[in-house]
Design a protein around this nucleic acid. Structure first.
Lengths: 316, 316
DNA sequence: CTGTTAGCGCATTCAA
DNA sequence: TTGAATGCGCTAACAG
């Protein structure tokens, strides 16, 4: 692989001229043309490591994702990527497979890799998270959860819940059951639930609530166990689309004859439209959240102050 | 951030001793203890860029993925990640959103980033691919497709097709329809199809074949148009699980009364089990393919010769 | 507009 | 076992 000196020699100029040509551009037309030609001929590419070694910026953004085959993650990353392209950042993806420890590791590794910033799509912020985040002297932004003292992008879960609650309430159902998740997850387990309850309450409806898991398989078991004891259902709501899909699976099982008129989820996962009958869901602006994460990140890199917590409105 | 000289000074030794401590280890016990302590105290981490600048290896593997919310991609990446961890490689993921041009770009960017190797999960190898691959002096391995002259990991699509064909044949169905894809995709469009046809043929069954798209939305339209003209269906086969899901969606639409007894897909996507009635599918060893890709890659990096084309057997 | 020089942080000679 | 010196490829002062 050729380096800058080779090009300089070939062009009969000094390294600095080549460097200047590559960066500022304060170079005479003649040499510019000459260099342009030579660089193309040899398709020379400056060595990123040498560049990064000198510069403080690496133009690398690290993103930590808990899983991959998820509509939410996919859309968010798309949003991030779109901005990366535009601003010439490279995205360094780090996949954790939903394991907390891997998340911590990833933060360390990425900050060692001198990424300019880290975008963390976390499910849950633990003590260990805070420790590493504190140590790593890299701007970090959390997407999907917020935490006092950390920069974050979240969706308006309360609003989403409220909207769904109202929509359901208007239909005057008698038997509403809500499958929620742990309150450890502030966004989903608390805000979303509260929104839903308030929405329903404004129509004098009080659903029964049952707590289950984020994981489809576990949710399926729970739903099965719970619903087998219930004989009247009008509306079944899952706190996430995955849970709604589990509800659907059990409800439209051939053995089961008490079927709900409506199943509702949260998230806008296309899968809700693939099953029959389809599941009603509410769209979050994942793509927008990804884009916004990048603009925040760029602010942070430039050391400009930004709002600590950004809330993305839901699609209504 | 501290650097190697800082540590050296603090320990009262020279930089080279610190470096040696970090690498070989030919250091006296005394200084080793001293260094160990100091390095921990200041949680010093050697600068990766400086290391990479000197070394030829960067311990970076680039992976190019066409999309994210896909079971196949997810599982394959899991396999890759598992090996990366074990051998201390960092994975640099590059997401292309199914766009050929982005794929080409990614290859260039990654080779500029001096990754030690590239794993490409391609859908289709075009002329442009070959050009960049040729130029980039980085070992590249293709997962999911093979191409003469390129290293690749593929699944045994013919075997999968054959197995499915036999399974279906044993049930002696009368009306079998197969929704295939373009023959540009050698693996799916040709091998998988041929396997299926041969398997069915051994039971004297000749299905009608219709070519559709990989994309769910397009497949749904095609399926709709095609099936609306057909009044007898026993078994409907999609060349991929996504296509099978489209078939399912249309077939179990309430308006439709001619329903198939079996829908069959390829890939083992969990979604096939979530819909009701569930879709039969066949598992590919995606995880294994990912792992294998890494072992091949490591061979290539070491410049050891490997088989050009590795075929992963399907799960039967 | 251009060249010389120095240094980013590290690993590796070569002597001691 | 240790230290001094050198260079990986690049950019930024500085001087011309």
């Amino acid at each position: 692989m050729k380096n800058i000196s080779d090009i300089a020699k070939l062009a009969g100029v000094s390294k600095s001229t080549v460097s200047r040509y590559l960066n500022d551009g304060s170079v005479s037309k003649k040499t510019r043309l000459k260099l342009s030609k030579i660089i193309n001929e040899h398709d020379y590419q400056p060595n990123q490591f040498a560049q990064s070694l000198r510069a403080t910026q690496t133009h690398l953004i690290g993103a930590i994702i808990p899983r991959m085959n998820s509509y939410a993650v996919d859309e968010t990353i798309k949003g991030i990527v779109s901005q990366c392209h535009q601003h010439h950042y490279q995205l360094l993806l780090n996949y954790t497979g939903l394991q907390i420890e891997a998340e911590i590791d990833a933060i360390e590794t990425l900050s060692r890799s001198k990424v300019d910033a880290i975008i963390l799509m976390a499910t849950d912020i633990t003590e260990s998270h805070l420790e590493v985040i504190d140590k790593a002297d890299v701007p970090i932004i959390i997407v999907g959860q917020n935490y006092p003292g950390l920069h974050s992008i979240t969706h308006d879960d309360y609003q989403a819940g409220l909207s769904v609650g109202n929509w359901i309430g208007q239909r005057q159902p008698h038997h509403v059951h809500f499958f929620s998740v742990t309150e450890n997850d502030i966004a989903v387990g608390i805000h979303r639930k509260n929104g839903l309850l308030d929405g329903l309450a404004s129509h004098q409806i009080k659903p029964s609530i049952f707590e289950t898991s984020f994981k489809y398989e576990n949710a399926l078991e729970d739903v099965q166990q719970y619903l087998s004891q219930i004989d009247k259902v009008d509306v079944l709501v899952g706190a996430t689309d995955a849970i709604a899909l589990a509800i659907h699976k059990y409800s439209f099982n051939s053995e089961r004859n008490c079927k709900p008129t409506i199943i509702h989820g949260f998230g806008g996962d296309p899968m809700t439209q693939i099953v029959s009958p389809s599941i009603r869901t509410i769209q979050f602006n994942y793509f927008e959240a990804g884009k916004r994460a990048m603009t925040e990140v760029r602010q942070l890199i430039k050391n400009e102050k930004t709002e600590e917590s950004v809330v993305i409105p839901v699609k209504l």
